Amino acid sequence: MRIRDLILPEDKVFLTLFKEMAQAIAEGADVLNEITHELPLGIEKSHRVRQIEHQGDEITRRIYEQLNESLITPLEPEEISRLAPVMDDVLDRIDRVTHQLCNYGIAESNDTLREFSYLIKLSIDEICHAIDSLSTLKRPEDVRTHADEINRIYNLSIELQARAVLELFKTNDLLLIIKLKDIYEGFGRVMEKCNDVGHALNDIAMSHA
């Protein structure tokens, strides 16, 4: 047990805020998944993702505000400062790719779009579970298990993106190739940010083992 734990109780507000952020990210991913299954319908749902992204910005602001005011934190301040922005980045990227998907006027969905959104949901489910496990850190290995799974899913997304781009260039519609390649790269950036969260969680778990 750390000495500071013997002096002051841990401030649980940070873990509450991280859970709120994880829930917001999960909701954004759910809406994105719905859109990829409903194209060309469902475009109006992109406004909901933008609202969720603004909620995420507010949660991040509250985390930093609380960090400046708290005498003691359940994690090291630098751990909180690292985790908060990478989680916010995930939601930012979900918002960006959602609007790409809707603004580019994609006439219909395809297996790649649906599979990407599914992998995003899987990755964010692991983030949510890891944040729940972070609440006590009595079993830091649980956090690491979820972080490892996030990395595994990220590697699957890299393979998916490579296959998808190869398939794109077999078509003759140059404009569609440009649009979908950009969207696939946008999905890839969401997965990169999820993986960044996984790295941050893994490092936190290791430091508290």
Rank of each mutant, 00 (worst) to 15 (best):
E69P: 11
T73N: 01
E79P: 11
Q66R: 03
E76V: 12
V90L: 01
H54G: 15
D89T: 14
D30Y: 14
Q55M: 11
S46N: 12
I63K: 03
E58F: 13
E76S: 10
Q55I: 06
L91T: 01
G56E: 03
A26H: 09
M87W: 00
A26R: 11
R61T: 12
E34L: 13
E65N: 11
I43M: 14
D88V: 07
I80W: 00
I43H: 15
G56S: 03
A26G: 06
E79H: 06
E69N: 15
Q66A: 05
L71D: 09
M87Q: 05
D57G: 08
G42T: 02
I25L: 03
L67V: 06
A26F: 06
G28A: 04
A22C: 03
V90S: 07
F18T: 02
I59F: 04
E20D: 10
I72H: 08
I80R: 01
E79A: 10
P77C: 00
S70A: 05
R48Y: 05
I52Y: 07
L32H: 04
E78W: 12
E65T: 08
G42M: 02
D57E: 03
Q51C: 14
E38G: 12
R82L: 13
I35F: 01
I59G: 06
V49D: 09
Q23I: 06
L17T: 01
E38M: 15
D89N: 11
E65F: 07
E65D: 10
I25R: 01
R48M: 05
A84I: 11
F18R: 02
R62G: 11
M87T: 01
I72G: 00
I43F: 13
I43K: 14
L41I: 08
D57P: 09
A84P: 07
G56K: 03
G56F: 01
T73R: 03
R82H: 14
I80D: 05
L83C: 09
E58S: 13
Q55P: 08
T60V: 11
R48A: 09
H54C: 14
G56I: 01
P74G: 05
A22I: 00
D88Y: 09
E58M: 10
D88E: 07
D57K: 04
S70G: 00
E65C: 09
F18C: 07
D30P: 08
A24F: 04
M21C: 12
S81N: 10
E78C: 13
G42V: 00
R50G: 15
Q55L: 12
Q23V: 07
Y64C: 00
L41F: 12
M87H: 07
S46M: 10
E65W: 05
R48H: 10
A29Q: 01
L17R: 04
I43G: 13
Q55A: 11
P85I: 05
G28H: 05
S81W: 08
